[in-house]
């Protein structure tokens, strides 16, 4: 059982402390934007941020969450897209779309730390996030595009 701060709101999770954050979000709070892909930090589909750092939520027990959690639901909505999400739409990134929540949360953490990443820096940050449809070129393009839009802003 834990009180968590998620997307700026305090939420009570009525699940055992050892349950990973991923499942607290998905099953405890019905916040299904964060996805299950592997359960072993091998695919990145479950990426969220804790205090701005990208983490694999399948590997963080809900009792061990050390800061404020930000999920895909916290950074924008279809009617009010964040700059990064808008770049994702502009570049038509998604195919099946299942990995994209994790890709976006990883990319958001990258841009917060490095506002103008090079291709190599994007590769370094994003290579833990698997996509089976092969959307990588458009992910890269969307990150570059969002980076320049954020700098203009």
């Amino acid at each position: 059982m834990a009180n968590l701060t998620i997307n700026g709101e305090t939420r009570y999770v009525d699940l055992p402390d050892e349950v990973p954050l991923l499942w607290a979000l998905r099953d405890g709070l019905n916040m299904t934007g964060t996805k299950f892909g592997c359960g072993v930090a091998a695919c990145g589909a479950c990426t969220v941020q804790i205090d701005g750092e990208a983490v694999r939520s399948c590997q963080v027990a809900v009792g061990d969450v050390w800061g404020e959690v930000t999920t895909i639901e916290g950074i924008g909505t279809p009617d009010n897209l964040s700059v990064l999400q808008a770049a994702w739409v502009d570049h038509q990134v998604a195919q099946c779309g299942y990995c994209q929540s994790g890709q976006i949360m990883q990319a958001a953490a990258l841009l917060a730390e490095n506002p103008s990443p090079s291709d190599a820096e994007i590769d370094d940050a994003m290579s833990g996030n698997l996509c089976r449809c092969g959307t990588y070129p458009r992910i890269r393009a969307a990150i570059h595009d969002a980076a320049s839009k954020m700098q203009e802003a």
Partner: peptide
């Protein structure tokens, strides 16, 4: 054509089989 599923898939609101609640 712009795909109709892009905004839902960029915001985690697209509902997959595993997301049924």
């Amino acid at each position: 054509q712009p795909r109709h599923d892009q905004a839902p898939k960029a915001t985690g609101t697209a509902e997959f089989s595993i997301d049924v609640r």
